[in-house]
């Protein structure tokens, strides 16, 4: 057992966990943050993507103790109360989800991608950057549209707020 202490979505949290506990299980089971999903056993689907110290990572492939001392943002940490984060709003607007299983990971990957490309994104870059996220429903077209639209809104003005949230 180890003590795991993290800042999750702006709040300091800690708890004892077995060393073998994956970060995704710590988030879901110890903290009740079930927005982060597990979609595979092979580190390939991206349903579990969260931000650790500002970088998108697969929380199914990292131990909770490895993350101890870090700052974590999950899908639950993006919206500002009832105000959706621009990436969430764009997924709704552009019909970027169907069953929604892949969506938390898609949105966390998308916010990371937009933050790393302040110069803007094009379709080819979005598709390459999405290589670690699998969607069984949408065929990706509307996900790509949503991310391109969010990237435009975020570079226009709501940048400050989005940056803080992500």
């Amino acid at each position: 057992m180890s003590d795991v202490s993290l800042i999750v979505n702006g709040k300091r949290v800690s708890g004892a966990a077995e060393d073998r506990t994956l970060l995704v299980h710590f988030l879901r089971e110890n903290l009740g943050l079930t927005g982060t999903h597990v979609g595979c056993d092979t580190s390939q689907c991206g349903a579990c993507v969260v931000h650790v110290d500002g970088k998108a990572v697969k929380s199914c492939s990292m131990l909770a103790v490895q993350a101890s001392g870090s700052t974590v943002v999950t899908i639950e940490g993006l919206a500002n109360g009832a105000d959706l984060h621009p990436v969430q709003a764009a997924f709704r607007e552009h019909h970027g989800l169907q069953c929604g299983f892949c969506t938390p990971g898609m949105i966390m990957t998308a916010t990371d991608m937009i933050n790393r490309h302040p110069e803007g994104l094009d379709e080819a870059t979005v598709r390459t950057e999405l290589e670690g996220n699998i969607c069984r429903c949408t065929g990706y077209h509307n996900i790509v549209k949503a991310i391109l639209a969010a990237s435009k809104t975020m570079s226009k003005g709501s940048k400050g707020k989005a940056r803080q949230a992500a």
Partner: peptide, 9 residues
């Protein structure tokens, strides 16, 4: 190598 999340770690 891999995808962005794999490259981050």
């Amino acid at each position: 190598i891999g995808d962005p999340a794999v490259r981050h770690r």
